[in-house]
Write a protein that binds this DNA or RNA. Sequence first.
DNA 1: TAGATTGTTAATCGATTAACAATC
DNA 2: TAGATTGTTAATCGATTAACAATC
Lengths: 218, 218
Amino acid sequence: MGNNKEITNVSKATIGRMPAYLRYLKEKEGAGEKTISSTAIAEDLRLNAVQVRKDLAVISSVAGKPKLGFEIRELIRDINRFLGYDNVTEAVLVGAGGLGSALAGYGGFKNYGLNIVAAFDKSPERIGRTINGVKIFDAKDLTHTVRRLNVLIGIIAVPGPAAQEVADELVAGGVRAIWNFAPAHLALPPDIAVKNEDMAASLAILSKRLAEILYNEK
Amino acid sequence: MGNNKEITNVSKATIGRMPAYLRYLKEKEGAGEKTISSTAIAEDLRLNAVQVRKDLAVISSVAGKPKLGFEIRELIRDINRFLGYDNVTEAVLVGAGGLGSALAGYGGFKNYGLNIVAAFDKSPERIGRTINGVKIFDAKDLTHTVRRLNVLIGIIAVPGPAAQEVADELVAGGVRAIWNFAPAHLALPPDIAVKNEDMAASLAILSKRLAEILYNEK
DNA sequence: TAGATTGTTAATCGATTAACAATC
DNA sequence: TAGATTGTTAATCGATTAACAATC
């Protein structure tokens, strides 16, 4: 996943903006446009134009042209390559409740280079069922199956208190990256990549911003 | 939601860490502990101790005591108050597909001061159904109903291409904050709070980190 | 050509971390 | 008392933004 050449020295912030650029550029391409300027991107995406240029410089194999801007088609190709969307990585999902089912049912991850090859749950009613082609296995076989399938990414969608144990089992099975949707902090070795999808944190930031807006207008 | 006194000058990063502190402190309280030091919190949550102290200074009504640390019970009370978890704000959800259903079905938002009072969808099979006590209404009544209910927060869980229109309707109905789960950039007035839950961005950051880890160990 | 747009260097901003005196 | 821990000031780090010469 991703490309060795660009692995180092790209900030998280820059990486995080890439999918938004990609969506935007595809939209423009769909509308029949051929080139785009950093100033136009910046205006539409509410970013700073210099920031856009620096971001594009990181991934672009071809420089922009003064007066013209960037080739949309080339940018799309380069971002796809940078994000590793052209070669798919396999993942397992743990927890097939509401959120887990939604994640398994969402077909769109394949476009993001992620393929969920198996799900796990400990509830007997769920084990054996299939969601959008993803079969649910017994969670007690987690470590073993992950190892057998040689999967590198684990997605955790279990209740908070169960998350640490699941994470340990995933790591024991050889997983090297964990996408954690459970409201829990995971203690893991430093050579395991973790991304917490902390809804409570997001909501807190949104709420505070709302409070600020309401406060300021009075 | 939130407390006027602390509205200004608290960084997003600090706000975002508060829910994690809260979870951690509740765990410690549940284990019967009375006080905790910033160094202990920092170690367990893999943060810097100075950062923890600065964060706590923002929300704490009582100073920590040298040698002893902080009163867990007081910290919990203060964080709850800071995050506005004691007074609930109402929200509507738009999109009752996989992710939308999962969000409606998740009862936990009430603990975060958020109450989903209605859902909307345009699919006839979904309209009229109820998920975990949340009734699904026809999306064509969105603006009208939002206005009538006086709701300030809208949650968007529709497919990307539909998101901008939904956002406009929410704003037309008087919503002041939007929690966006759709893979789309929203163009909105500056006095509307927006928090994008960009799964593609998260996944990109995780994938790059994984690639880096794998690259470094060879 | 003229001017829109690029890429880069320097300045600014914001957040994290280090250093350290105060104190229970 | 001694030392763990606090709160604060200063230094560092990282990312964003401003300034500007180069150029198609």
